[in-house]
Design a protein around this nucleic acid. Structure first.
Length: 425
RNA sequence: GUGGCUGUAGCUCAAUGGGCAGAGCUCCGCACUGUGGAUGCGGCGGUUGGGGGUUCGAAUCCCCUCAGCCACCCCA
């Protein structure tokens, strides 16, 4: 038990969890690039003022790591990426070719009580499409999500993407005679609908000074799953989803509103289908964000996904593959002390032919070296003992099939190539 | 920030009502000096999260504190 503990809410990434993180990163990169998005990164600390403009007030005031630096400036460990993105876009807004498709994967911090699905330091995938305003653009971002799920083996019965539109929600409220000025509270109320039982929900509504008539009206509206057909914007959105072949993942969900204030149009979130975990990701369209930090207004649509909940969901459905700890495919054993140099030379030769090779760094018993290869998930072991040296060959053992063969040195590389192709194929 | 549950070996957990801190797994060694996730034997490993209190005696009871988990809040 070490006496110095890790900071609360942080996680140590030992090689096995690092392997998962990199696997997830690779899947994210793959999907992002499939749709033409370009990777970028922003600073991990920003000036406090950057978040003053928008973000939910609470996010910065209550839930961020804020410090005074040595020069006396207030800085924040970034709790989210969108303001940084907005700043970066704003400061080059004339020279960036539009549409802008950017994505990023990096660490974020929020000063909250850690619990299931939530830590104080987490990794987040952000992806945004800026400079184009259309339901089709919104649908593309949702298609990125669906494609991502598909690529991980998550089926439409396992995960769902709920979509709504804030402007449409506002018009629905107007039709009930609810003034726009009440929207912040009402949106919060709507956001809770699925999470509370009916009695508690009405109670909460009354606390917000919403009349019984309005509460009944809202409850009624939230039950109508087809009202989106009255919104041309949503109709176009769902038509685009069909063209993008993702409709099976997507629902109209009137209770999806999202917490952050800067969303203006389409909003969406993805959840585990049975709703037992917190939201996997959330996002939507924001119209004015870049203008708020001093650039020309540019509209965008995007989302953020944390690494914690998606991992829980993938674990739940058994979609995380066996990730082998070692990055190499080949282990060169050391037979005995006298052959140590031979082993080193052999490992170097193989490495120089651009294979990934690990050398066993001492002359332990052979069974021990084989056990090591097993545990590290290294599929191929090369044995170079006196017999092999005598015959100028090596023994290549394939741990996957429990087979082995003596291979002349001049045919070694071809043989290895063929073995490893089998693995990838 | 509020409330609840839990902290015992690297990990998972035991320890009758307060009476000698244990087991499994892991790790290391040996059986086994040319061949694997098996088996057997042995070994390493602990201020019982930390601090204080009650007691002849505390892993056990009480208080404080820290951490983890769960719910709220909020959200990825």
């Amino acid at each position: 038990m070490s006496s110095i503990k890790a900071v609360k809410g942080t996680r140590d990434f030992y090689p096995d969890s690092m392997a998962f993180r990199n696997w997830l990163y690779a899947a994210i990169r793959n999907v992002s690039e499939t749709f033409g998005y370009q990777e970028f990164e922003a600073p991990l600390i920003e000036r406090l003022e950057l978040y003053a403009a928008k973000s939910g007030e609470e996010l910065v005031k209550e839930q961020s790591f804020v410090f005074k630096d040595r020069g006396g400036d207030m800085v924040v460990l970034r709790p989210e990426l969108t303001p940084s993105l907005a700043r970066m876009i704003a400061s080059r807004s004339r020279e960036l070719t539009r549409p802008i498709r950017w994505w990023s994967f990096g660490p974020f911090w929020r000063y909250e009580r850690p619990q299931r699905g939530r830590s104080r330091e987490f990794f987040q995938w952000n992806i945004d499409l800026l400079g184009v305003v259309s339901p089709q653009a919104d649908a593309e971002i949702v298609a990125v999500i669906a494609t991502f799920f598909k690529s991980l083996g998550l089926s439409p019965t396992q995960v769902r993407i709920g979509v709504n539109n804030r402007r449409f929600a506002e018009s629905q409220l107007e039709s009930l005679g609810i003034p726009n000025s009440a929207n912040t509270d009402i949106f919060r109320l709507i956001d809770r609908k699925e999470k509370m039982d009916e009695v508690a929900w009405f109670e909460y509504g009354r606390k917000l000074n919403v009349s019984q008539t309005h509460l009944d009206g809202i409850q009624g509206k939230l039950k109508e799953k087809d009202v989106w057909k009255n919104s041309p914007e949503l109709v176009e959105f769902f038509t685009a989803c069909e063209a993008l072949d993702i409709k099976e993942y997507v629902d109209f969900e009137p209770t999806v509103i999202r917490g952050l204030d800067y969303y203006t149009g389409t909003v969406f979130e993805a959840r585990d289908a049975d709703g037992s975990e917190r939201a996997i990701l959330g996002g939507g369209r924001y119209d004015n964000l870049v203008g708020d930090v001093g650039g020309e207004p540019i509209s965008g649509v995007g989302f953020a996904m944390g690494d914690v909940v998606i991992k829980l969901v993938l674990e739940k459905y058994g979609h995380i593959p066996e990730l082998k700890p070692s990055p190499v495919d080949i282990l060169v054993t050391t037979f005995d002390e006298s052959l140590q140099e031979n082993a080193l030379t052999l490992a170097t030769e193989i490495r120089n032919s651009s294979f990934k090779v690990e050398w066993y760094p001492q002359a332990s018993r052979l069974s021990r070296q084989l056990k090591y290869a097993d545990k590290q998930g290294i599929p191929i072991v090369i044995i170079l003992g006196p017999e092999e040296v005598e015959a100028s060959c090596v023994t290549i053992k394939d741990l996957r099939g429990r087979t082995q063969e003596k291979v002349p040195k001049d045919k070694l590389f071809k043989y290895l190539e063929r073995l490893l192709e089998q693995q990838n194929g």
